[in-house]
């Protein structure tokens, strides 16, 4: 078996697909995996593939031209998903796509297509969760949100919030993948990588709650009907892992309280 190894970013995945395709070593003999490789095997060949913008663009161009922009949209979404077999499934789906055309995604008789659809469904759900549960904090008329998703969903979220708040300055920081999207008022967003120091500074924002956050917590608690209380249903629809940065489940601390506590400590 020949293993093509690449990083998890989209450019590396596309470059890896390009290399695996052009080297023509026989699709049954190759597999695409992500680095770091935990355990190497003795008799297999491992090929490291480095991201190359020009090669990645060739794949993007081929998919858009020979298949369809909608097909590219679908594979780009699955590319964000966090699973060890993403690159390999994408490679095999593209092989099938180039052989049968863009409607191949409906051919669930192929196990790779079925796996692709499962991953597409999961990433769609995760994007929906964070579209719903991302909470912004106001800092000098700018809005900052911190999230910890499982997958690299920041590009999809950026599109969502660009449409929702085009005339606000906002930023969403992804602590899992150490990246952020920054949107200036009436402008277009851009992605930045976060340093450890920046991440720590961002975490400070959540420590104080302003008046609107207190009001939201009041609303969240009052609007529930006690006679219909159903925590199991709430957990099912609002999974606990997505609540990490949700204001409504935090203990409210105003700036004044934090200052008083700090003075006491000093």
């Amino acid at each position: 078996m020949i293993y093509y190894c690449c990083e998890k970013d989209w450019e590396s995945v596309l470059t890896c697909i390009y290399e695996a395709w052009t080297q023509k070593r026989g699709q049954a003999n190759i597999q695409l995996i992500f680095e770091p490789v935990v355990q190497y095997t003795l008799f297999d060949e491992y090929i490291h593939v480095k991201a190359d913008t020009a090669l990645a663009e060739k794949v993007v161009d081929a998919v858009n031209r020979k298949l369809s922009p909608q097909f590219y949209y679908e594979i780009a979404h699955v590319g964000m998903y966090e699973a060890p077999d993403v690159a390999d499934v994408l490679f095999r789906v593209l092989l099938l796509g180039f052989a049968y055309g863009p409607y191949v995604l409906e051919m669930v008789q192929y196990k790779d297509i079925m796996r692709f659809r499962e991953m597409r469904c999961s990433i769609g759900n995760e994007i929906s969760h964070f579209r719903e549960f991302t909470r912004f904090h106001e800092v000098n008329h700018r809005y900052v949100a911190i999230i910890e998703p499982r997958s690299r969903i920041i590009p999809a979220l950026a599109e969502v919030f660009l449409d929702r708040m085009p005339s606000e300055s906002w930023m969403i920081a992804d602590l899992t993948n150490r990246m952020a999207v920054v949107h200036p008022k009436d402008g277009f967003y851009q992605f930045v990588d976060l340093t450890a120091e920046e991440m720590e500074r961002l975490m400070e924002i959540e420590k104080n709650n302003d008046r609107m956050e207190v009001l939201w917590k009041i609303f969240f608690e009052t609007t529930a009907i006690q006679e219909r209380k159903n925590e199991r249903c709430q957990k099912n629809l609002y999974p606990i892992w997505t609540r990490k940065h949700a204001v409504e489940f935090m203990e409210m601390r105003t700036e004044k309280q934090t200052c008083c506590e700090n003075e006491n400590v000093l």
Binding site: F133, P166, S167, A224, L237, Y238
Partner: peptide, 22 residues
Amino acid sequence: GQKGMLGNSVAAGVCHAFAADG
């Protein structure tokens, strides 16, 4: 959404939280 305005609307709707009653 439109520049100069706040907000958009999605056909499927968006739930932003789930209260204690689910």
